[in-house]
Design a binder for these strands. Structure first.
Lengths: 205, 205
DNA sequence: ACCTGAACACCGTTCAAGT
DNA sequence: ACCTGAACACCGTTCAAGT
């Protein structure tokens, strides 16, 4: 009886948990959150239901783990904007990064997450916190650019930050319908539109 | 045996079908597509599972019915743009209509649909067809406005139509996170941004 | 044709039992 | 502590039987 008591093995614990996340997201990309059974995830992760539930308390908790991962990688993508010298230039570079490096896998997971957020308050708060962060980074960068004179002064920085976020969200969600290739074709027009919004007009003031 | 053969009663059929759609969308708004059981829908519609499955072959078919409904009402909202005299003015009126008349119910259903599209090819094609239609209406209106000189000539009309669609999609999906009130506050900034994109600059050409 | 409700295969999760 | 797999309550859907 005492022979089988073990102390927590944190390293083993971490590797098991990430094996579960990896197996689960592979399944979710193929069939979505709800059409994927826990049995499938168990088989993909090579463990019994009991073992899986030892590491994650529920399917939702696994989903939350995946959202965490995706959020962090999106945060990294937007980070350079924080200390941008020229807002528009860095915004464009960021768009290139996002559109260039995103995968069908990510698009599919984003769409699943967007729907899941509605139903799961914990997930909702997780995403909202992430949102506020990127929103603030963008808004601060816009204010800074307005002071430097590279962005039109009369724009409401925080609203414009939300518009950029919304536009990115919307274009990505439409890419799941029309394909990533189509989005890449349209990227120059997106940049052109953003430039017209933000760049100070020659005759203004 | 022959006593109970009846001929199809189309009127009765239609009223039963719409009762199911109504009951189902009420349930879906509360708990989402996947967290709603068919038993709940049956109770809400006041019929047994067997009866419900007599009118709709599956849960997905009910969802498709709801998507159809939502698509048609969105089409109606965008219709006035087709024969707009002044593109920007009518676009702004349409935005006011959408943002003013949309309900939390619609937002929730939109988000559910966005995720469901990924998994169900039939639904996907249904939404894509709808999309192409509004895309074309917008693009034609932009071309017409460019000829009339109220919209900048150098913009790619079809790309810009997609950007508008994307922006609307994105802002609506963000409204599920931040609330409709927030979106209404931001609407003037959205219009300002659109005006800057589309209106021909005084010094251009 | 229209309707019922029991029955089917399957789902996410739990838990007694093992090491 | 970590792991197994049978068992539980519930799911979407079907179908024999009724009117």
């Amino acid at each position: 009886m005492v022979a089988y008591m073990r102390t927590r093995n944190l390293e083993h614990n971490e590797s098991r948990r990430s094996a579960i996340i990896e197996a689960a997201s592979a399944c979710f990309v193929l069939h979505g959150f709800h059409a994927t059974s826990m049995k499938e995830v168990c088989i993909a992760a090579g463990m019994s239901p009991g073992t899986l539930y030892h590491y994650y308390r529920s399917k939702s908790e696994i989903i939350a783990g995946i959202v965490e991962e995706e959020s962090l990688s999106m945060r990294d993508l937007l980070a350079p904007i924080a200390d941008a010298d020229d807002f528009i230039v860095v915004l464009f570079q960021t768009l290139d990064q996002i559109v260039g490096h995103i995968s069908e896998r990510d698009l599919v997971l984003y769409a699943e997450v967007a729907a899941e957020i509605l139903r799961q308050p914990v997930l909702r708060e997780q995403v909202r916190a992430m949102e506020r962060e990127t929103q603030e980074v963008l808004a601060n960068a816009i204010v800074k650019a307005q002071r430097a004179g590279t962005v039109e002064r009369h724009l409401n920085a925080s609203h414009m930050a939300n518009i950029i976020n919304g536009l990115i969200d919307g274009l990505l969600s439409r890419a799941t319908l029309h394909g990533l290739a189509q989005l890449r074709l349209e990227l120059p027009s997106v940049k052109q539109a953003l430039a017209r919004i933000f760049v100070e007009l020659p005759d203004s003031q």
